[in-house]
Amino acid sequence: MSGFARAAPNEPSPAVVQQAIAWMVRLQSGSASPGAWDECLRWREAAPEHALAWERLQGIQGRFAAMPDVPSALAQQTMDVARKHMGRRKAMGLLSVAVGVGGTALLLRQPWSESAMLADLRTGVGEVRRVVLTDGSVLLMDTATAVDLRFDADERRLVLIKGRIVLTSGTDASAQRYRPLVVQTLHGQVRALGTRFQTHLQADGTQVQVQSDAVELRPHGSSEVRVLRQGQQAWFDASQVHDLEASDGDSDAWTDGVLVARSMPLAAVLEQLGRYRLGHLACDERVAQLRISGVFSLKDTERSLDLLQKTWPIELRRRTRYWVTLVPRG
């Protein structure tokens, strides 16, 4: 037995830490190629210092994900001060200094725009959050969602910057006069008429589904006003409201942590599961239209993928844990 202890790797230098962060940004961008994952692996294996920086960055990210209120509280305190004295870009720089690598790792979980990173309320990839607002309204935030709150004496406005929410309107009992409750997106606004409703911001428009009572839709670039009632859904862009139809009864199953598929194409199932995990998830075009029915966990997407593999004639091909493709079995 040797009398010499194994030397510990050197502490990562600031430059190496920045390289690790850059790799995490690149790989979690949603557009990294298989070659990028391999290149990152080679970088990590090139020096013990690289491996240690990567390991610590992942560890910090995991700890902050498990305690979401800790960094968000610190970030919010920093932003409250910064917004009073400087622009949003300078405030973002101050935020990075204040929360250090841990906060940076938290922010890099999703390729946010700057406005989403600075939002009042945020969720990371795979995170679903319940928030009780000051007026008594209950907000459920889906994975990778960002919301700004603009409550004043005249109205209660939620700006949906990214993602999907379900909002149950509160009584606003402490207000001295009636304040309308509004969800705003880049396409227009949804006004609650004493209700529970879902709002999903997508690239081409905003989808709204009403679970109880009613809402009023107003596209930004139009004088049109459309009322949706319980069981109805529609989507609108900046010019008009489209496709008024009966609502899908399973549309808010994500609030219970599940995806309900009823003869859904495999490609669509994977698109939904992919929103709750990092990396690349896709299928071979030969099985893309395979019809899938079942209930799948959004909290444990690995279990859902295993269920798909066991139940249908498909198998998983893993280039890395972050690059998964489903192909025909055999």
Rank of each mutant, 00 (worst) to 15 (best):
M1A: 11
S2T: 15
F4L: 15
R6W: 03
A7L: 11
A8W: 12
P9R: 08
P9I: 12
E11L: 10
P12C: 05
P14C: 05
A15M: 09
A15K: 14
Q19V: 06
A20K: 03
W23I: 06
M24W: 09
L27E: 01
S33F: 09
P34Q: 08
W43N: 06
A46D: 04
A47P: 00
E49N: 09
L52M: 10
L52S: 02
A53P: 04
E55T: 12
E55V: 06
G59I: 10
G62M: 10
G62Q: 14
G62Y: 08
A65C: 04
A65D: 13
M67N: 15
D69T: 13
S72P: 01
T78H: 00
R83Y: 15
K84I: 01
K84S: 07
G87E: 09
R89N: 11
K90F: 09
L95S: 08
V99Q: 01
G103L: 08
L106G: 01
P111H: 08
S113A: 14
D120W: 05
D120T: 09
T123Q: 00
G124K: 04
G124S: 15
G126S: 04
E127H: 01
V128F: 01
R130Q: 10
T134L: 11
T134Y: 00
G136F: 00
S137T: 08
V138L: 11
V138G: 00
V138E: 03
V138N: 02
L140N: 01
M141P: 00
T143G: 01
T143L: 06
A144N: 11
A144T: 08
V147P: 07
D148Q: 14
L149K: 14
D152K: 12
D152F: 13
A153E: 15
R156Y: 06
R157T: 12
K162N: 12
G163P: 03
I165L: 13
Q176N: 14
R177E: 14
R179K: 15
V182P: 07
V183N: 08
Q189E: 13
V190H: 08
T195P: 04
R196C: 14
F197D: 12
Q198I: 06
G205A: 04
G205T: 07
V208L: 05
V208Q: 03
S212V: 13
G221W: 10
S223F: 06
R226V: 15
R229W: 10
G231C: 08
G231L: 10
F236H: 05
D237L: 04
A238Y: 01
Q240S: 12
E245P: 02
D252C: 05
W254T: 08
L259W: 02
V260N: 04
R262Y: 08
L266N: 09
A267T: 14
V269M: 11
L273K: 03
R277M: 07
D284W: 03
R286M: 01
R286E: 12
V287P: 13
I292V: 15
S297W: 01
K299I: 07
T301Y: 09
T301C: 11
L307R: 09
T311E: 07
P313R: 02
E315W: 02
R319H: 12
Y322L: 13
P328D: 06
P328L: 04
P328V: 02
G330Q: 11
